[in-house]
Design a binder for these strands. Structure first.
Lengths: 342, 342
DNA sequence: TTGTAAGCGTTATCAC
DNA sequence: GTGATAACGCTTACAA
């Protein structure tokens, strides 16, 4: 019952060596030439005393915190949950701790809350920062650079900043459209995301390219927030048009949920009157009614990759990477040939 | 473009005072008697140089990390997303950083992964630890106590450990049952959670108490994992029984999702043939088909409360708190009087 | 093969 | 009112 902290000195005393030796044993210094029995004594003492190195002292000395930051808009968004999982696993594999902060954990007086997050993080607590789904805030990138903290945007680009890893949203969109074409649809609408979201513009580009490739005219296009409410309103606009489409590619699951509601509340049936396919195969997709056809992309891998890159980023490196990795269409019940019930 | 770190000494030099003075200005030392103009010089220098205190040095000196840990089973579980949000906001309000780790971020060789998390966290990095939805692992609590790190279990109790904050799951369950009774149901089944989950046993107790209070015989009871698959299987057992219930109280949304699928695939209709109500009003509940009636509990508040308590916990304090706060039934379309369509 | 000593950037206790 | 100084616990040349 002694709440005294045990330090290197205690271990050294018990093992009858110098603190330096203990330190080098712990850190597996390859240049250390030590007698096996001495090493044993040290190891035994560490074990006996339950010694654990003090992180603050170590960080101060080495100026490495062994901690990465990850900033996201919202923990409740399952897209980021997947990214976090990958990032955390990779960080752990490297012996790093991941400290994830969200915009919702801040007052958000202005902007994304990134500034407040960085204030709380303080100087010297993290060795790198991943920015997922958030734009930069004016001046913050500069602040990071001045502090020589490597940073990287995940799943999102911003204003010509050349330090990002993104998924191949364009290909994902194309996959979705091709699926609809294959089912026989010709009037394929696009329920796009907000133009402020980088993913939205990439998915829209993919839609356009795929429609062109299929020799089809781009159907009605309308944009909405990545929210159910936005999706429902947008679907209303789509249904009010003169030539009603038979299928729609929705840029995001959240809007798709609203879009489905929009179809139902117009007295129509999915997929008979409207096929729907959306991006990101989140767990909840299979529990919607009807189960939603989606495009799956490697979100967790994106998180992993971000951490990996962060670890090996030089000050002025530029990173513009589109993640390789499987992108697949997960067919469920929300898509069918036009007029069919499924 | 100087990646040099600016330290207290730099500020002191620029303001032509001693480091000690700068330190005391920054920390608003009330015993500091300083000439206004001097303070101005210091503040100006801090601003000019963009000085930010080094966290490692500060931690080493004060042995406070200004960081709390939070360990959860899985980021993808929306229940924890809510808890995190509350905890993060409260931590931020106290000037603390929250470092959330999950079991999925570890190899999970054995147990919950808590051990690996704590290893990575190391000594002196956190001032307190919140354990949400995880049992203790043998020896880990002792390790925390030895290191004098306050800890607290959230939403979960374990083996007679008297340091927890939980929600009033019993009352939540009662609310759900009372709702069904009010609709006219008499054969009300219970799809319980796994007996290993503390929340499950409390919800079951609430079910029993409410049934007794209503003068109804406890309907069939069956247990399942907190997963859709478990819920579907359990619903199968319920439907196979001799006297089919007209309503069921499901301990958890995830199992409820499976249970709904189970009802549908038996060719029955919700709520006409079976009313369903479940615990936790997660966002997705309103997007299920039919929209799920739930009981809402203050999850974010639970997170906040946990952090608040952590901050003021003395070594041998005992905490056994059932959160006050609103618990309400959110009626949607999955419940109706027996035989009615809604 | 092991020990010595300096220093990382702070804060706290004095002294002036 | 402000300055000196000694820790906090660790790593890393370099010395022995």
């Amino acid at each position: 019952m002694k709440p005294q902290r045990v330090t290197l000195a205690d271990v050294a005393a018990m093992a009858r060596v110098d603190r330096a030796v203990v330190s080098r044993v712990i850190n597996k210094d390859p240049t250390l030439n030590i007698r096996p029995q001495t090493r044993e004594r040290v190891l035994a003492a560490i074990d006996e005393l339950g010694y654990r190195p003090n992180v603050a002292a170590r960080s101060l000395r080495t100026s490495r915190a062994h901690m990465f930051g990850l900033f996201i808009p919202d923990f409740a968004n399952p897209v980021y949950a997947e990214i976090i999982k990958g990032a955390e696993a990779e960080a752990a594999a490297q012996g790093y701790v991941l400290v994830t902060g969200s915009a919702s954990g801040t007052g958000m007086g202005s902007g994304t809350g990134l500034g407040e997050y960085m204030d709380r993080i303080g100087q010297g607590r993290i060795d790198g920062l991943l920015l997922a789904g958030t734009g930069d805030e004016p001046g913050l990138i500069e602040q990071l650079d001045r502090a020589a903290i490597p940073w990287l945007m995940l799943n999102n680009r911003s204003r010509g900043v050349k330090r990002y890893v993104i998924l191949d949203d364009q290909r994902a969109a194309a996959l979705a459209v091709e699926h609809l074409v294959r089912l026989g649809h010709r009037r394929i609408a696009h329920l796009a995301g907000p133009s402020s979201a980088d993913t939205a513009t990439r998915r829209s580009a993919g839609y356009s390219a795929a429609m062109r490739a299929a020799g089809l005219p781009e159907g009605p296009i309308t944009a909405a927030d990545y929210t159910p409410a936005g999706g429902a309103a947008a679907m209303g606009r789509l249904l009010a048009g003169s030539e009603r489409p038979t299928a729609v590619f929705v840029a995001n699951v959240a809007s798709a949920i609203g879009a489905m509601e929009g179809v139902r509340s117009a007295g129509l049936e999915i997929p008979r009157d409207m096929s729907i396919v959306a991006v990101h195969d989140l767990p909840l997709a299979s529990y919607l009614y009807p189960a939603l056809t989606t495009v799956r992309m490697p979100l967790a891998e994106l998180g992993r990759r971000g951490v990996t890159l962060l670890g090996s980023l030089k000050p002025d490196d530029t990173v513009a990477e589109v993640m390789a990795g499987p992108i697949e269409l997960i067919q469920r019940r929300s898509t069918a040939p036009p007029g069919e019930r499924r």
